[in-house]
């Protein structure tokens, strides 16, 4: 029943999003912590979510009007850039990191692989401005949108007047992103007693709790912390991770622990997309860890798993796939007639 609750709540969000300003609350799945995002400062409405969704698919956000958020964050692949180790922005410019999957953002305490962004509202500023992504600026976006009656109407519906500001733009995008809740995988249904694991999945879950849960903590499957997981530095990128933001040598090569939800389809893996298959990831943890002063203490002794155990663990990881999330029509671009 609880998983059905989440599903129904999400459906309600969607059904209401016809064209009204009705208030919406991000559904909190049973057993989950309270969201970190303060919705009192940005109350969600159907009109605000609809505007954010429109903006998410809007190429006008990029300098040459060719690239939208969705170019690197595709709904069908848990909002990551599937098959791209590093994402490309306008003019085929290649960035330095793998586009992270987007889900359950209301529970995130920081954003980007290095935690550079401290609030969901402000996250969109980074790709809008980054040279290798949209290479534009938020003031330019606001000006462009202000020239379109369609947007002036949508801002009016969402915020009560047709004045377009950076604050409203960012809050609308955040509203849409807050609705991207993934909480109806088989794992969730098993947790709520609505489904059962196979023997293999059950073994995999036990292995997960033994080896992975400290960092990829349930139910979000991330601790939201920064860790050095022993990847060999890539000298073509020289990415210092968290240390690039804090300047603190203790943060060298630390990256934000990503969620494992929908991991099956959000390949390739790691901040630089170096691993194509889950098998490669597990092999890294059992035999590829590079020691360094900032290596996570939990990885100092390499994880021991034989190939059968790895297969079982992968079987468990596949239960984290949430098809309701991946194929939710409300996360795709709107048809013009619905607006």
């Amino acid at each position: 029943m609880p998983s059905r609750f989440v599903c129904l709540a999400l459906t309600a969000v969607v059904l209401l999003s016809a064209a009204t300003g009705d208030p919406v609350v991000v559904p909190v799945p049973p057993g989950w912590p309270a969201p970190r995002y303060d919705q009192a400062r940005n109350p969600l409405t159907t009109a605000g979510i609809a505007l954010g969704r429109r903006l998410f698919y809007e190429p006008l956000l990029s300098r040459d009007s060719t690239v939208s958020c969705s170019n690197c964050h595709l709904s069908f692949t848990a909002f990551t850039h599937v098959d791209h180790a590093l994402s490309h922005g306008i003019a085929d410019r290649i960035g330095i990191r793998n586009a992270p999957a987007l889900m359950n953002l209301a529970w995130s305490s920081s954003f980007m692989w290095d935690g550079a962004v401290n609030h969901l509202d402000m996250q969109a500023l980074a790709p809008i401005s980054n040279h290798a992504e949209m290479d534009f600026d938020v003031a330019g976006v606001v000006e462009r949108l202000g020239n379109q009656e369609k947007y002036r109407k949508m801002f009016e519906a969402a915020f009560g007047s047709d004045i377009i500001t950076g604050e409203r733009l960012l809050k609308a995008v955040a509203q849409f992103e807050l609705t991207l809740v993934s909480a109806n995988s088989r794992y969730d249904r098993v947790t709520y007693g609505k489904d059962t694991f196979t023997m293999q999945e059950k073994n995999g879950y036990e292995l997960f709790k033994k080896h992975c849960n400290s960092c990829h903590t349930e139910p979000l499957f991330t601790s939201c912390q920064f860790e050095n997981n022993g990847l060999k530095p890539d000298t073509t990128l020289n990415d210092r991770g968290r240390a690039g933001i804090t300047g603190n040598p203790a943060d060298e090569m630390k990256f934000r622990v990503p969620t494992l939800r929908n991991i099956e389809i959000s390949y390739p893996y790691m901040h630089d997309g170096r691993f194509k298959r889950l098998k490669d990831v597990l092999n890294h943890y059992t035999s590829g860890i590079k020691d360094s002063p900032t290596l996570s203490p939990l990885l100092k002794d390499s994880i021991k798993m034989d190939s059968n155990e790895k297969t079982d663990l992968i079987a468990f990881l596949l239960t984290l796939t949430d098809r309701d999330f991946l194929f939710n029509p409300d996360f795709r671009p709107q048809r013009d007639s619905t607006n």
Binding site: M122, L125, A126, I128, S129, N130, D137, V138, A139, V142, T165, G166, E167, L170
Partner: peptide, 8 residues
């Protein structure tokens, strides 16, 4: 943030 005084 359109005032150009917020880091991106």
């Amino acid at each position: 943030p359109t005032k150009g005084m917020y880091w991106t």
